[in-house]
Design a protein around this nucleic acid. Sequence first.
DNA 1: GCTTGACCCTCACGTGACGGGAGGCCGCAG
DNA 2: CTGCGGCCTCCCGTCACGTGAGGGTCAAGC
Lengths: 252, 252
Amino acid sequence: MAYTVGQVAKAAGVTVRTLHHYDEISLLSPSGRTAAGYRRYDDADLERLQLIRYYRELGFPLEEIAAILDDPRVDPAAHLRRQHELLTGRIGKLQEMVAAIELAMEARRMNINLTPEERFEVFGDVDPDQYADEAERRWGGSEAYRESNRRVARYGKDDWLRNKAENEDWGRRFVAVMDSGVPADSAEAMALAEEHRQLISRWFYDCSYEIHTGLADMYLADERFTAHYEAIHPGLTAYLAEAIHANAISRA
Amino acid sequence: MAYTVGQVAKAAGVTVRTLHHYDEISLLSPSGRTAAGYRRYDDADLERLQLIRYYRELGFPLEEIAAILDDPRVDPAAHLRRQHELLTGRIGKLQEMVAAIELAMEARRMNINLTPEERFEVFGDVDPDQYADEAERRWGGSEAYRESNRRVARYGKDDWLRNKAENEDWGRRFVAVMDSGVPADSAEAMALAEEHRQLISRWFYDCSYEIHTGLADMYLADERFTAHYEAIHPGLTAYLAEAIHANAISRA
DNA sequence: GCTTGACCCTCACGTGACGGGAGGCCGCAG
DNA sequence: CTGCGGCCTCCCGTCACGTGAGGGTCAAGC
């Protein structure tokens, strides 16, 4: 099976220029040429291109790709295995980034200042304990609370009061359900978990079930959020987290 | 809180040169300068840098990032929400890529030729039904079977015969267990699923439990693999897939 | 058998996002 | 007051292509 540059380009989702470039630097030279000088690619070339595309997607420079592909000690199957590993690693990193985004969203919502290392730790290369006075900035957010209300530009003072009232109303009803002794996966607790989700959605950002369960885990893991909920009522954090999970499962 | 270029660079995992560049193009200009002309970044700058880093990681060009960050219609929380969506989308794409790698690995193992669109469909931009005679190349692999044995360079003829014998032996014993009527999650079936995994690991590539269950799903989804196993014994594919899953769970 | 339009070729310069060095101030620990 | 690490501004280099310019090729249709 032979293919022209155009066909290969279209199939692989690259431009013709890219294939020319790969030919120029001898990363992927077509196995032959026609009498008129047209490039002819065969199945083996496509296989090589597939490996190249995956390595590229993983961020490898072309020179390095050429080196590892032309290494005679590595057989083709090993490349696939390697790419599988690299990809799952990459997925893990992106999931951490998702968690970091959720952290940033909740920090906004609760008016908590993030430290620089919290903002960027998912990008690696952070050298811990270089910010000695972390605790200060970490909790300094409560000081900024009143004035920062103005920072969420589109809300007026009365909006904030209504928001606060709704939150407190929800808190009272949630504590009542909790104290009534029903389990966290009861219909009542789940209904209030759902209300919690909709409260966030209405006031801050569209909170999917996926994000919501992410938040629940974060409340348990991060002492600042735990503190926020434990201050309402001891044991509330764990109970809420369980109710959120149960609610998300039941709606799936 | 004020930071110097070096501090910001170290925290955010970028170089000082990058921050200079962002300043040059007015993507991220420090909120102030010292008397000596030193750049001074504050917390708001870091917040902006966090957004920039995420958008960059997602592949946005700097100019576009500047445009969306400076769009007054978009509030900060919306950016986070947007990045959350983009990230989860990206994760989904990478998971498809992982599946495609697993497909390529199994295709190698079973000597099945992949079509160009199968190699590259995860990269998008494929225009279907442009390869009309797909079916021919799809199944053309069986013809190439005998001669392609030589292509897996490091194996000699006797290696292949031993491999084949081991495979057939496993197949006979698996059919026996299946016909004995025990469920697919019985100890016997799971033991043979485990043997299947180790057979792949010994002869082709290191097959983790994760990959193994990925393969099981593929056997059910892709008719070529289904055909391979159904040819051994009808109903084997589904039984094997279930046994593989049960085995993977029990070892976790 | 000749045109026409889609596709191919080789230069060759342009671009985005920085890397890296030169040459020279700044600031604080000893 | 003297290092020495950190900061500054040019400014050229690089990588992976993008984007024409100028020109040959090929199958389809008239």
